[in-house]
Every structure is written in C-alpha cells, then in structure tokens.
C-alpha cells in the first residue's frame, strides 16, 4: 500500500509565517549579542588606560581593537544575514552596562582588598565570557535556521574571542597575587 504518489511535497516549518516569526526571534537574540559585546568593548577600552605593565597594556590594546571590529560585524553582517536591523538602544545600554561592570569591579576591590586594575581585568574576563556565549548561541541559531552566513560569522567571532579569553584568563590568574597579596598596582 502506498498512497503517496505524485503529491505536492510538504514543507516543514518553511512557510513564510513560521519562518518570519523565527527570524524575528533570532533578531531579538542578536540584539542581546550586540548589548553584551558593546558592554565588553566599553570595558576593555577603559581598562587599557588603567594598566601600566607594558605587555599587558599591549595585549589589551589589541583586544580592544578586535572588540570594536567584532561589534561592527555584529551590527552589520550578522543582522544583515537574517535581513533584520539592529537596535541602537541596545548598543547604548551595552555601553552603560560596561561602565556598570567597572563600578562593580571597584566595589569588589574595595570590599575584598584587591588593589589596582586587577578587578577590571577580572570583570573583563567575565564580560568576554558573557558576550562569547551570546555569540555562540547566535551560531547555533544560524545552524537551526539553515543560514550558513550566520554560522560562519559567529563561529569566527567565537574563535577570536575564545583566544582572547585564554589571554584574559592568563592575565587575571598571573596578576592576582600582585593585587590581592601585595596590594600593588601593575
């Protein structure tokens, strides 16, 4: 028995209504990606100025340039790949969130006895992890929607940020003793 001869093929979740709804939901997440990246970019830009040690300062300056580029890629190419526009409000909120993280770092330093810019490095480490996770989610959404451009853009951003994360972790772990035990700036 086989009744399915020469019927029109059926489409699973590829009709316009379902597709449009899912793309709108993806755009909402991409705005979250933008917010977390803008927050991180602001924090890393401000932290560079606070570091004296020349090598760490150079590392962070390079990370700051990448953070700026990544934010532009998210605002431009990532949204364009799903034919949606980014929210300027989210960028502004992100910048504010970056400043808030600096304040949080200052408070932690005050209450825990850590000294100098180390607490900013620590907040930077957490902030990059946050935005990297948001972008990794965007990559998965690209795969789920069958859009290679989204997956490829996000994959490259995650790869870059993952490398930066290793460097940030190393700086945080290496310099913690200077800040916490010696109460010294670096």
């Amino acid at each position: 028995m086989d009744n399915m001869t020469q019927m029109q093929p059926i489409l699973i979740e590829l009709d316009n209504e379902t597709r449009s709804k899912q793309l709108d939901r993806a755009a909402t997440w991409f705005n979250n990606v933008l917010l977390t990246q803008a927050s991180y970019r602001k924090l890393v830009q401000d932290t560079v100025e606070k570091i004296d040690e020349p090598h760490i300062k150079q590392y962070l300056a390079e990370i700051a340039m990448r953070a700026e580029t990544h934010e532009e890629v998210i605002r431009g190419e990532l949204f364009s790949a799903i034919d949606r526009n980014p929210s300027d409000v989210r960028t502004a909120l992100g910048t504010m969130a970056g400043k808030a993280r600096e304040a949080l770092g200052d408070m932690i330093a005050l209450t825990s006895g850590a000294k100098g810019p180390w607490q900013d490095l620590h907040q930077l480490y957490l902030s990059n992890y946050n935005s990297m996770g948001a972008i990794a989610v965007a990559e998965q959404l690209g795969l789920a929607l069958g859009i290679p451009q989204v997956a490829h853009i996000a994959f490259q951003l995650v790869a870059d940020k993952s490398t930066d994360q290793l460097l940030l972790q190393e700086c945080v772990l290496e310099m913690c003793s200077m800040s916490i035990l010696y109460h010294e700036r670096f």
Binding site: M4, Q6, M7, P9, I10, L11, I12, E13, L14, A144
Partner: peptide, 9 residues
C-alpha cells in the same frame, strides 16, 4: 524520483 517532504531537521 520526487521529493515528498522538505525542511526536515
């Protein structure tokens, strides 16, 4: 040969 279902995940 003909397609029957399209869009499977």
């Amino acid at each position: 040969v003909e397609p029957v279902m399209v869009g499977l995940s």
